Computed example of a mutant assay.
Amino acid sequence: MSTKRLFQSVAEQIATLIDDGAYPPGTRLPGERELAEKLGVSRVTIREAEIALQAVGRLEIKTGSGVYVSENKPELAEALPGASAFEVTEARLLVESEAAALAAHNITDEGILRLGQLINQMRTGDEGAANEADQEFHLTIAEASNNLAMVHTIKTLWRMREELPEVKATYEAVCVHDADSRTEEHKAVYDALKERDPAGARAAMREHFHRLIEAMLDATERQALEELQQRSSASRERFAAASKIA
């Protein structure tokens, strides 16, 4: 792992410790030497990780005093726009297709092995396990792109998929009907990455999202038709009741 990638990984470990309550907001972090021993890295790497966390508002470095956990998480990191499922999926198509192409250049043998394991997990028939594997599959590819901006963007898009109620409901309505298609599409992405084929990985990922968008359109049409039928039935009932009174 490169020095750059190492301090980024350590920064994520420290952020996780903060989120898990090991270092509550406002408290002082252990010194560089103690953290270096705890995480098995050099003091220089700890220093670089702390600077990176200060840049995103997670830490405050006070000269002569120490490094402190910020009292509040940055509001920008928590806010999500009220995007539709189509907007989220369109953005995923654009970003994740290019992430897959980059990953084809950089992914390790261990990464390929993990993707294969996740595809097998999708085939178990357990919906919860399949959804978890789906998310990890996409995030593993994002990490393999070695582009932090893409990783951050893709993680945010997944937050939108899971935390925006209308987006989550749309995905659930679609994914429950397309488990087999989803698995085979992920297998196509996996095959291209295994061959280290950037163009193939990009095309396979784009095909996956194109099919997903089509499924969303079909689901939306079905929902609109059902709502129309319900309104029509209600109108017929009111008309029948009014006719009896008359």
Rank of each mutant, 00 (worst) to 15 (best):
T108K: 10
T108W: 09
D109C: 05
E110S: 10
E110Q: 12
E110C: 06
G111F: 10
G111K: 06
I112L: 12
I112R: 12
L113P: 00
L113W: 13
L113E: 15
R114T: 08
L115K: 08
L115E: 05
G116Q: 11
G116T: 09
Q117G: 14
L118V: 05
I119N: 08
I119D: 06
N120S: 13
R123I: 00
R123F: 00
R123C: 04
T124R: 11
T124S: 15
T124V: 14
T124N: 08
T124F: 08
G125M: 07
G125N: 07
G125C: 07
D126L: 02
D126Q: 08
E127H: 00
E127D: 12
E127F: 01
E127P: 00
G128I: 04
A129S: 15
A130Y: 03
N131Q: 14
N131M: 09
N131V: 04
N131H: 10
E132R: 12
E132S: 13
E132T: 11
A133P: 04
A133Q: 06
D134P: 07
D134W: 03
D134Y: 11
D134N: 15
D134L: 05
Q135D: 11
Q135N: 10
Q135R: 14
Q135F: 04
E136F: 11
E136A: 14
F137A: 05
H138C: 08
H138P: 02
L139N: 09
L139Q: 13
L139R: 11
L139H: 04
L139F: 09
T140P: 03
T140W: 04
T140K: 07
T140A: 11
T140H: 08
I141C: 02
I141S: 03
A142E: 01
A142I: 06
E143M: 12
A144K: 05
A144C: 12
A144D: 04
A144I: 04
S145W: 04
S145C: 10
S145Q: 05
S145K: 01
S145H: 07
N146Q: 14
N146Y: 10
N147R: 06
N147W: 03
N147C: 10
L148R: 13
L148F: 08
L148G: 07
L148D: 12
L148C: 02
A149Y: 14
A149M: 12
M150Q: 09
M150L: 15
M150I: 14
M150Y: 11
T153R: 09
I154S: 03
I154T: 06
L157I: 10
L157N: 03
L157V: 04
W158P: 02
W158T: 07
R159Q: 11
M160G: 09
M160C: 12
R161W: 08
E163A: 15
E163Q: 15
E163S: 13
L164V: 14
L164P: 01
P165I: 11
P165N: 12
E166I: 07
E166C: 07
E166F: 12
E166L: 13
V167K: 01
K168I: 00
K168R: 15
A169N: 02
T170W: 00
T170F: 01
T170K: 03
T170Q: 11
E172F: 02
E172H: 06
C175W: 01
C175I: 02
C175R: 04
C175H: 05
V176I: 15
V176C: 02
V176K: 01
H177Y: 00
H177G: 00
D178N: 03
D178C: 01
A179N: 02
A179L: 04
D180N: 09
D180H: 09
D180S: 13
